[in-house]
């Protein structure tokens, strides 16, 4: 019983880790993405830089993902 409860909490924690970081990255990326597309519309050469800037907030999801994977499979 205690075991099952612990498993449930781990699953919840993993879900929160990915879900919340996903939300955060989404909020961060929306304005950067809009600006990057604007810049690209003016000069397609901005593609490389624009992409780099846009995915910067994404690293937070990756951290969340790693935390979730470790929670689920390593613990």
């Amino acid at each position: 019983m205690v075991e099952a409860e612990a498993m449930g909490l781990i699953a919840l924690g993993a879900g929160l880790a990915v879900g919340l970081t996903g939300l955060g990255a989404g909020i961060g990326e929306q304005s950067i993405g809009a600006a990057a597309i604007g810049a690209m519309a003016e000069d397609p050469k901005f593609f490389g830089k624009g992409l780099l800037m846009t995915v910067i907030p994404e690293s937070i999801v990756i951290f969340g993902l790693v935390v979730a994977l470790i929670l689920l499979f390593v613990f």
Binding site: S59, I62, F63, L65, V66, L69
Partner: peptide
């Protein structure tokens, strides 16, 4: 820290 997130980023290969 970006170095760390760069390496972690490859977790997407699995994900």
């Amino acid at each position: 820290p970006t170095l760390l997130s760069n390496i972690f980023s490859y977790a997407r290969l699995l994900a």
